[in-house]
Amino acid sequence: MAKRKKNGKKRIITLPCRVAKMLDLPEEGFEFVLKMTMLGNEYIVIENHRGIYEFFEHNISLLSDSGTVKISGENLVLRETDSDRLYITGNIKGINIE
């Protein structure tokens, strides 16, 4: 059940995800996919992350299945935290997934 991506990494497509695709349902409910919701440039909610890799006032790096998410900005604060959800506030200037 694995497809090979262009960069050579394997992307595992699980059975629930396949069923969701067949039924035209959103995949996010069945798979641990990184989900980011941004409100303007001041608030960002990141769901399904794998932990904090780096945390500074101007830079926050998070681990996820899709790679490392780098959020850059100023006065970044982790307003609320959860095991798989983060609510970040501050002056967000950029988001980079590596």
Binding site: G51, I52, F55, E57, L78, R79, E80, T81
Partner: peptide, 21 residues
């Protein structure tokens, strides 16, 4: 290891808020 400390708190389900460096 402050990041590890934060991950530890989150994984243990501790309710933490307003984290500032």
């Amino acid at each position: 290891n402050l990041e590890r400390f934060l991950n530890l708190l989150m994984s243990n389900g501790l309710d933490i808020k307003n984290i500032r460096r």
